[in-house]
């Protein structure tokens, strides 16, 4: 039961966007260029509005996320698509259906694109093998979150004009972070140097094999960096199992001006949100209008997701293309 015929798509020769790992530098560059155009485009640009007319984008979130789901929903709507949202609260998974049964059921409604988030690493790869449309990974477990890495890269590129040669520190809960993994893939592929900084309890084994430098001391790891990416620390991880307490975490790993002072003078501060002020980041730093680009990241998110939806649907034969 094939949804639509597919033609070769030289712009983006992948059926799905499951991660950054499988992408080439040139493909990333093209996605970022396209994202950049969408970022500068008016919200009601009529050409864009016609692009996905008659297409169905289905947001399937097995793990709740208001911000990412809203961002994808807006992106799809700005391209004129029909959008449905299925969140975990109403999911049949709760009634005992397996992931693949749910996927087959949704697939029968013939979506062109499924945007999927799941708490298990690899769940979206599995699902993508069983559906006819394109699948965008909106975050799977601790594996990948490709649109987050793309929006981070777009934010950096628009601020600093390039990725090549930059020194980027990713700080905090690397162990559980799909954002960290996707960013490591993207940044290293694009010629940036990446450091990770965390207590060893929050560092995955052999992380250095992913091409990053490992630090356990913020004052050393932040030395001369251009970009500081902070990660969110989940509440349940800061009560003794991985980190003894919030105050100890903030004392050694929370970003404040004192620790930031060893970075480049204009180093940018990023955070994928939602922030825990006073845990991984000091409020003053988070709100520093000259250095914090946290709100820009959210803004770039919509543009990047428009570009991904555009790129993936170029392979589908239909009267609108």
């Amino acid at each position: 039961m094939s949804a639509e015929a597919r033609t070769p798509n030289p712009f983006f020769p992948h059926r799905h966007l499951l991660g950054i790992e499988g992408l080439s530098a040139a493909e990333i560059e093209r996605l970022l260029d396209l994202s950049n155009r969408y970022a500068d485009m008016s919200k009601d640009d009529s050409t864009a509005r016609a692009l996905l007319r008659g297409r169905t984008v289905m947001n399937v979130f097995f793990e709740n996320s208001t911000r990412t789901q809203t961002s994808f929903e807006l992106a799809a709507k700005r391209l004129g698509a029909d959008v449905t949202n299925m969140s975990v609260g109403t999911s049949s998974i709760k009634k005992g259906e397996t992931l693949l049964d749910t996927a087959m059921t949704l697939n029968a409604m013939r979506p062109d694109v499924m945007v999927v988030r799941h708490s298990d690493s690899g769940a979206i790869n599995l699902l993508s093998q069983k559906v006819d449309g394109a699948v965008i990974n909106a975050g799977d477990g601790r594996h990948e979150h490709p649109t987050q890495a793309l929006l981070d890269a777009l934010t950096i590129r628009r601020r600093l004009g390039k990725l090549q040669g930059l020194l980027v520190a990713i700080c905090g809960d690397i162990l559980h972070s799909r954002v960290a993994r996707s960013n490591i893939h993207l940044l290293t592929k694009m010629g940036a140097r990446v450091r990770v900084i965390a207590p060893i309890t929050l560092l995955p084994s052999n992380i250095d094999r992913m091409g990053v430098e490992v630090f356990t001391d913020m004052r050393k790891g932040l030395k001369d960096v251009d970009i500081v990416m902070m990660l969110r620390l989940q509440l349940e991880r800061m009560q003794g199992a991985y980190v003894p307490s919030v105050r100890e975490y903030f004392h050694f790993f929370g970003l404040d001006y004192e620790k930031l002072s060893v970075a480049k003078p204009n180093a940018l501060i990023m955070h994928p949100g939602p922030m825990n002020r006073g845990v991984e980041i000091d409020s003053e730093v988070a709100d520093d209008i000259n250095r914090s680009v946290i709100r820009e990241q959210v803004e770039m998110g919509v543009a990047v997701r428009m570009a991904c939806l555009d790129a993936l649907t170029r392979g589908i034969v239909g009267q609108n293309r």
Partner: peptide, 15 residues
């Protein structure tokens, strides 16, 4: 090493 010597939660070793 662990809070209350209960063998579960780490203490604030750094501080």
């Amino acid at each position: 090493l662990t809070r209350g010597l209960h063998g579960k939660d780490l203490v604030e070793m750094g501080m």
